[in-house]
Amino acid sequence: MNVFRLLGDISHLLAIIILLLKIWKTRSCAGISGRSQVLFAVVYTARYLDLFTSYISAYNSIMKLVFLAASYGTIYLMFIKFKASYDHNHDTFRIEFLILPCVLLSLLINHEFSPLEILWTFSIYLESVAILPQLFMVSKTGEAESITSHYLFALGSYRALYILNWIYRYYAESHYDVIAIVAGIVQTVLYCDFFYLYITKGIYGQ
């Protein structure tokens, strides 16, 4: 563990908590892409199956459970409890165009052709594009509530911090994982446009 990865995990946790609070407090999921949230639940489910097979640390196991619980909790709030506030009309990104290529790519490019490793690779590829429906929705509505933009900023920062973690681990532990690094760079680059808007003029209330 290093400070970059710890800050990244905290930023990730913060993003998920901000989102849950936003939906719970405002009792509305307006402006939030349910499709992206479904993709995140798929990402964590596919990636954290090793909860049952390999123990890394208490921190690792607890965080995996928290991320799984929070992502399914968000889906419950969006599609069941506050389903009336879900903005179907603007959440239209075709997620099958994200899932299928990730499935194919994970079968072609992976570290080991085993079920758990393929699922992990699929989750890495899918996570890198999982935010697209949300970014697409924000661009369609032309704005985002300030709380939603803070959510996106924290979520985008998490993987940017992980890139610093990978640089650190390469030099300090000569450990690197090309698949995670390339996907993490793609994921962070997708936020660049949003980061620019968030930092220059706070995209809410445009």
């Binding site: 080991e112 992990w120 992980y162």
Partner: peptide
């Protein structure tokens, strides 16, 4: 190549 199989990151 790094020691695969064990992904210690979230």
């Amino acid at each position: 190549d790094p020691d695969q199989g064990l992904h210690d990151e979230l």
